[in-house]
Write a protein that binds this DNA or RNA. Structure first.
Lengths: 336, 336
DNA sequence: CTGTTAGCGCCTTCAC
DNA sequence: GTGAAGGCGCTAACAG
């Protein structure tokens, strides 16, 4: 691969001049610039970003840290869509991104600082971390800019993008209330995820505001997994025939609930109304079609990347973005 | 961030010795090694891969070049699953990967060589390129090792992983033949994709071997898109009421075919049998459940990454891997 | 306008 | 066993 040195030798100019010519500085005469550009082209020169990074301290690469980039999530695709958003936005910049799949366990082996330092990451997009994950704390007082997805924590160099999940979750529960449901169960996701906490709070608040006393027995946990949700729902529905509606913190868990209902001969929506969260692809293909809350993961990824670039380049602008979710009424809900 | 120099200053040794101690060379005394290791730890040292790359010529990063990493493909998830495979395999190595989303158009702006050179990529996994894409030719006579997914071309530094699609496609068509179908239409994908060509060839060969004359009018093109497939199928089915079966080069296109049939009041499988390709998640959720051919994208990604590491590190081993597909019989096919 | 000098953080001879 | 010197490819002062 041709280097600046090669071009310098060919053209007779110094490496410095060649560098400046190729980087569009104005203190090079038109003549030498064209000459240098031509031989650069002839030699198939292309700058070594690695070498450049070493001196400029900018690697032009950002990290996309995700928890458990796993095949199972083809059902929700949340990760994939945010990744597409990030990728598309970055495509029009000079930045590239490395995918860093992590887990709570892995975070003990390599610190966040190390990850950033090793490759001199210019910035980081974080997705799917648990609230007590080491990386989250580290990220907050790190010098490398970062944008959190769905975890609303602000920091000196940290921004976040989230959605109005609280309001939309409340809206879903209140919708069930208006339909006459009173014994509304809630299928929560992993307790360690911020989104779980907030959705649960929304559920509780919606009930309170509509005059329903909270019944802790109606709150179960499916850890965002279909099978866990199925079992939890099975258990609950078996013991509590008074439950007439189920609000789930994710569509995948709603799938589990529907399966459990089917096994028990409970008809949806006649005997049980179900609302999910995410508006996954499957939700409109299953029977009955699932009433759910749509999110905009692609837009989240894309907004995150945009904010990150702003942070990296020191511009000021939005530090928090809240995207709008929407309650999508379909066939899995009906009057009590 | 602490550097070797910092550790050298602290311990009193030279940078050279510190480097050797930390890299496990044996020509350092036990005492100095432990001392150096301790202060390295204390200072939170972690090597600067960028700087190291510059001298070792190994960036420890591989490129994952994909065509059109786009949100639409949440329906097939092929890309995502291979990505997971690559990610998981790389997780146990010291390599990281950058996602490089490209397109035929983009390939004119930046050459494959440049992409590899700029970041000194140690190797590349290529997925989804069209057969006349510039990158494909360039990759073949490039010095950086690469592994192709689903494009069986071998090269000095190139390996590939694919599946027995030819056989499995033939199997599918022959299955339709055994069910008594004679007028079997074929919905092809993009002509520029290698997989399209091979599946089409399989279709033709299966017909020939079972004594059916080829009818070019029965071969239509949906470009791997649902809507395009829907329209193409609509057109064909409208004009050719003798068609009793449809073999599709992808499940997504099969979805389009099923939609077209529905619009025309054609019952599946009573009036029309449909077979897809990919075994996407949706295929077993729709009604009727789609008969299809399953692939193993995750395993492809994972195998590709493994082979790539072998190539990079100069070990010899398999250069071609063929994974097994499987015909999955469900509800969209029946006797003529 | 152009060249010289210096250095980014690291590794690899080659001496001692 | 340890250190000095040199260089990877590039950019950033600083002179001229």
């Amino acid at each position: 691969m041709a280097t600046l040195k090669d071009i310098a030798r060919e053209t007779g100019f110094s490496v410095t001049t060649v560098s400046r010519a190729l980087n569009g500085y104005f203190d090079v005469s038109e003549g030498t610039r064209t000459k240098i550009e031509q031989t650069a082209k002839r030699l198939g020169y292309s700058p070594n970003i690695i070498a450049r990074s070493l001196v400029t301290k900018q690697s032009k690469t950002i990290g996309f840290i995700v928890t458990d980039l796993k095949r199972e999530s083809i059902k929700d695709n949340f990760m994939y869509e945010t990744l597409c958003g990030v990728s598309d936005t970055l495509a029009s910049t000079t930045y590239e991104f490395v995918v860093l799949s992590t887990s709570t366990a892995k975070q003990k082996n390599k610190t966040y600082r190390q990850i950033c330092a090793e490759r001199q990451l210019d910035g980081v997009v974080i997705q799917g971390l648990k609230i007590e994950d080491p990386y989250l704390i580290e990220a907050m007082d790190s010098d490398t800019p970062c944008v959190l997805i769905d975890i609303p924590i602000e920091g000196e160099k940290a921004a976040y993008v989230t959605s109005n999940q609280f309001e939309s979750a409340k809206q879903a529960v209140k919708y069930l209330r208006r339909m006459g449901h009173e014994k509304i169960a809630y299928m929560n996701g992993s307790e360690h995820a911020h989104v779980s906490q907030i959705r649960k709070k929304a559920y509780e608040e919606a009930l309170r505001e509509t005059g329903v006393e909270l019944d802790p027995a109606l709150v179960v946990n499916g850890d965002f997994e279909e099978e866990m949700a199925r079992r939890a729902a099975l258990h609950l529905l078996l013991n509590r025939s008074d439950v007439s509606a189920f609000f789930c913190a994710s569509d995948v868990m709603a799938l589990g609930v529907m399966q459990a209902a089917k096994e028990l001969g409970i008809q949806i929506p006649k005997d049980l109304s179900v609302i999910g969260f995410d508006n996954i692809l499957l939700s409109r293909y299953i029977t009955p079609k699932l009433t759910t809350i749509s999110q905009q993961p692609y837009e989240m990824g894309s907004a995150a990347a945009e904010m990150l670039i702003q942070l990296i380049e020191g511009h000021d602008g939005e530090r928090q973005i809240e995207l709008k979710n929407e309650l999508i009424l379909r066939e899995s809900t009906s009057n009590r």
